[in-house]
């Protein structure tokens, strides 16, 4: 049975006259991993801080485990593990000390999992925090969060500053959480990370949710970019369902670049095969593509 873990209903937040969030609504269910995407300054961290009861909302409602996030933070927090976007630690404490302290403050203990994580993230726990690089500070927070057994994990851009190997370790750990039926809110910039781990995605821009849904529903987000050369002209490909952003690279219309819906790939290939394919390259959409489509102003119509 799924229950709602986080429910945001028309959330608003103003700092003086500045409107940081104008309308943010989404839900996170038990066992779900929700990807929270948006450009810098879109309001991701503000939303997370409101969920954590660190900021008071100016309008709308936020409930976590069915309780108001601001009023009942004391009841909610013991069931949460959190990693902020920018991890700052007490400069004179060692990484090992900080991990233990963060665990104890949530009534948890340094356990076997902690040791495993220290090993797999290759952290030197004896070093003082002020000697750590950004990635190492991030690791301290990750180890402390991932060694806890709680119901909800909130990660605010957790892999910024991590090298690809550690990023991989993080993704493996999150997939373990998913298997264990835990709920995760993952704010990220990295599309591949979100695609690999998340069931649903919420995209926020200028304090508003502009798209949300399951990965399947947002399949059009990940249209494939295709560059193709054919023996005969493929002018009629422009009428093909599922073809977007078509550009011909020569006047004979035998070279073209376009993006395609995954669902329509079969039909498109059939049409192209009839023109005798000489060369074909397909690439997944890059983060830049997504930024251009959804994060930029011109992407607003996708919200509908």
């Amino acid at each position: 049975m799924t229950t709602t873990i986080i429910k945001l209903d028309h959330l608003q937040k103003k700092f003086g006259k500045f409107v940081a969030l104008s309308d943010v609504s989404f839900t996170l269910e038990t066992g779900q991993i929700l990807g929270f995407l948006g450009p810098n300054g879109a309001g991701k961290s503000t939303t997370i801080r409101i969920i954590l009861g660190l900021l008071k909302s100016s309008g709308g409602s936020v409930s976590v485990f069915g309780k108001d996030a601001w009023q009942n933070d004391a009841k909610i927090h013991p069931r949460i593990a959190y990693i902020p976007g920018d991890v700052n630690l007490w400069p004179n404490l060692s990484g090992g000390e900080i991990i233990d302290l963060l665990l104890r403050l949530n009534n948890q203990k340094h356990n076997q999992k902690t040791d495993e994580l220290i090993k797999s993230f290759e952290l030197d726990p004896k070093k003082k925090a002020h000697t750590y690089s950004r990635g190492n500070r991030q690791k301290v927070a990750l180890i402390a969060a991932l060694s806890q057994d709680v119901d909800l994990y909130i990660f605010d851009e957790p892999t910024a500053g991590l090298d690809p190997l550690n990023e991989q370790t993080f993704q493996t750990e999150v997939l373990k959480l998913k298997k264990a039926g835990k709920s995760v809110l993952l704010s990220s910039h990295i599309l591949s990370e979100v695609e690999r781990m998340c069931d649903s995605i919420v995209i926020i821009r200028e304090g508003q949710v502009i798209a949300s849904g399951s990965l399947a529903q947002l399949r059009h987000l990940s249209r494939i970019k295709i560059a193709v050369a054919t023996a005969t002209s493929m002018t009629d490909i422009s009428n093909q369902v599922g073809v977007y952003d078509l550009t011909y690279k020569n006047t004979a219309h035998t070279k073209a670049v376009f993006t395609a819906d995954r669902d329509a790939l079969g039909m498109i290939m059939k049409t192209l095969a009839a023109k005798t394919i000489l060369d074909i390259q397909s690439t997944s959409p890059t983060l830049e593509d997504l930024f251009l489509r959804y994060y930029g102003k011109q992407g607003a119509h996708y919200a509908d």
Partner: peptide
């Protein structure tokens, strides 16, 4: 930002 993780915890 030293307290941000602690604020999200039990204390």
């Amino acid at each position: 930002g030293y307290l941000s993780i602690i604020h999200a915890g039990k204390p």
